[in-house]
Simulated assay, not measured.
Amino acid sequence: MTDISDIRREYTLSGNHHEDMPDDPVTLFTHWLEVVKASEIADPTAMSVATVDETGQPFQRIVLLKRYDEQGFIFFTNLGSRKAQQIEGNAKVSLLFPWQSIDKQVAITGVAELLSKKEVLKYFISRPKESQIAAWVSKQSSPISTRQVLESKFNEFKAKFANGDVPLPHFWGGYRVRPSSIEFWQGGENRLHDRFIYTHSEGNWGKSRLAP
């Protein structure tokens, strides 16, 4: 067994105080995201999306948050992907924003719901053309023999759509995760971290401090 138990550091950035926490967690998320963007963290909108398969086995992957508001947090994907198949069987998911370099993280639980075609198309046409083409190329989560197969298919579709717009693939869509809880974690000295959780009930948010 490889012992890595001595890998540790002290969390010295300022903590959270109850009087500083707004009643609306989305307001606090926006503030934290602005802090993250200002810190020049790579991929500030990267989040882990955890889903569960039919046996109860959880699986996580990193995706990019593309939009959010009081209604939820939005990401896009191939609707034939493993995550989409697992969401179809169990729409309860969790999201995690691991902003460790500034001693912060945000954990969200909620239910994922499919976006309308109008919402999906609005985002799809805003993507770079190469990204639009890539959506056609990859049958996400399915086995492929070599990378060359993928690259050849990309070149094929690039030529096909060279002189016109790239249509929205019928198998490409997105999800809005409607949150039931949002937890904010701020690292603290001596492992006395600050944790606050917002829970949604009957249209209102409640908040409480959690022990680290």
Rank of each mutant, 00 (worst) to 15 (best):
Y175T: 10
W172K: 02
R61K: 04
A107R: 15
K122W: 08
F97C: 02
D23R: 10
I197A: 06
R178L: 11
T30F: 06
I182F: 11
L79C: 00
R176Y: 08
V93T: 09
G206Y: 14
N90H: 13
S145Y: 12
Q85F: 00
E34A: 15
T12C: 05
F75M: 01
H170W: 13
S14N: 13
D3T: 09
G173Q: 03
F161I: 00
I87M: 01
I108G: 05
I144L: 09
F184H: 06
A107Q: 14
K122P: 01
F157T: 03
W99P: 06
L95T: 10
Y68A: 06
E113V: 13
P98D: 04
E40P: 00
K104Q: 15
L96V: 04
K104S: 10
S39R: 05
I144Q: 00
S145H: 13
E10N: 13
W185S: 06
P179M: 11
T55I: 05
D23H: 13
A84V: 10
K129S: 03
N16S: 14
T51I: 06
R176M: 11
D6R: 15
A91F: 08
R9G: 01
A91V: 00
S208E: 15
K66L: 03
R195F: 08
I102Q: 07
S152M: 04
K92N: 14
P128I: 09
T51N: 07
H170P: 14
G173D: 03
S5H: 13
T27M: 12
V149I: 14
D69E: 00
N78H: 09
V49N: 08
I133T: 08
W99E: 01
E189W: 11
F29T: 01
H17V: 09
L121N: 15
A42P: 07
T12W: 01
T146M: 02
G72K: 05
V52Y: 07
I197Q: 04
V26I: 15
S142K: 13
T2K: 15
I41E: 10
E183G: 07
F184A: 03
F73T: 02
R178P: 02
K117A: 10
H170I: 14
I74Y: 03
T51Q: 10
R9A: 11
F76T: 00
A107Y: 07
K37M: 10
S141R: 06
K153W: 06
Q100T: 12
I74F: 09
I7D: 07
K207H: 04
